[in-house]
């Protein structure tokens, strides 16, 4: 568990204290993929860098398990940092070292001298990230996606319990992003390590996170399971992020919707209900007509979900809504 207890952070700029993060509490559970989303300057990097104390909080306490990070002296902090891997937007590999030496670097820093041990561990890690045949290359000879895989292998070298990802896919194209996210998800599953990931793309959150916090101007304005936050965003900032991830929905939610007659609803199906013919059964039984205005069916991590915007017409609309609710469908009335 990573705990932030009334942590806040401000930077001194020209003699004035500028708050970057207002006091907050947050728990990140062992083994989960926790996303932090926010616009540029919201304080995401500041927050994630507090975890390994690359940034010292201005106040409050940060705990990892039973260890109070904020109370450690230098050597103890360095030892703790070895249990926390980190990957970066711009990879931050050593340009003067080969891929293998980059991955071996944290092992050597930790005092490993046995060349055979280093060699086998590096081989294992490169195998894991699918770069076994690139061991002798230099970072400048790799693509962005490959560089990030080296970054991931390097971050995993000391078998950390936590992996911090600072915009790890922001410099990558959509396909490479998908592949890297897949790798991170697999690592989370297989190694059971906790991943804390920051991003400004809701799609990244949707694909691999279990829970998410939305950061806006230094405050956590919303947090919860990704399904809850994604399907029922409350804060305007969260809505904007969700709309960015669902462009067609955003487009159809404008003026035309107001002109449609009938009772407008947004239906949310989660999990098993997504896959059963509830809607057609209820409509048939209640004799209500519906007009489909917008919709999508997709996944949030492994959870299938559907979200449909409908206009209902007919005398039995109330009964139909009640029947849908009974079947476990979440319903929001739209104006």
């Amino acid at each position: 568990m990573i705990r932030f207890l009334d942590v806040h952070k401000s930077y001194r700029v020209d003699g004035r204290e500028i708050p970057a993060l207002h006091p907050f509490r947050l728990d990140i559970v062992d083994g989960e993929v926790f996303g932090i989303i926010g616009h540029s300057g919201a304080g995401k990097s500041t927050l994630i860098r507090l975890i390994n104390l690359l940034e010292r909080p201005s106040g409050g306490r940060i705990l990892i398990g039973d260890t109070e990070m904020t109370a450690l002296d230098e050597p103890a902090l360095r030892a703790q940092r070895r249990r926390i891997g980190m990957i970066f937007q711009h990879f931050n590999l050593l340009a003067s070292q080969t891929v293998a030496d980059n991955v071996a670097f944290p092992l050597r820093l930790a005092g490993e001298r046995d060349a055979a041990k280093i060699h086998s561990r590096v081989g294992e890690l490169l195998e894991r990230v699918g770069l076994a045949e690139h061991a002798g290359k230099y970072p400048s000879q790799l693509s962005g996606g490959q560089k990030q895989r080296v970054g991931i292998a390097r971050a995993l070298a000391n078998r950390p319990e936590i992996l911090l990802c600072d915009e790890a896919t922001s410099a990558l194209d959509p396909q490479t992003t998908a592949a890297v996210l897949e790798l991170l998800a697999a690592i989370n599953r297989e190694l059971k390590l906790t991943i804390v990931l920051i991003t400004h793309e809701m799609d990244v959150v949707r694909r691999i996170c279990d829970r998410v916090a939305v950061l806006d101007a230094g405050r956590i304005v919303e947090h919860g399971t990704v399904a809850d936050v994604f399907l029922h965003p409350q804060h305007p900032t969260t809505r904007r992020f969700v709309n960015e991830a669902l462009p067609e929905e955003a487009a159809s939610a404008g003026a035309p919707l107001a002109e449609v007659r009938g009772r407008k609803l947004r239906l949310t199906f989660r999990g098993a209900t997504t896959l059963s013919p509830v809607l057609s059964r209820v409509m048939r039984e209640s004799g209500v007509d519906f007009n489909l205005l917008a919709g999508r069916i997709d996944h949030i991590k492994e959870l299938p979900y559907g979200q449909l915007t409908l206009a209902l017409e007919g005398a039995n609309a109330d009964a139909a809504v009640a029947a849908l609710r009974d079947a476990g469908i979440e319903i929001e009335e739209l104006p």
């Binding site: 940092r81 980190m86 931050n92 590999l93 340009a95 050597r108 000391n158």
Partner: peptide, 20 residues
């Protein structure tokens, strides 16, 4: 960023000078 990555790995200042 490279220096920061080394710090995040628990490198001491001397190790950063010598190896980064």
């Amino acid at each position: 960023g490279v220096i920061e990555a080394a710090q995040a790995m628990g490198a001491s200042t001397w190790q950063i000078v010598r190896h980064v």
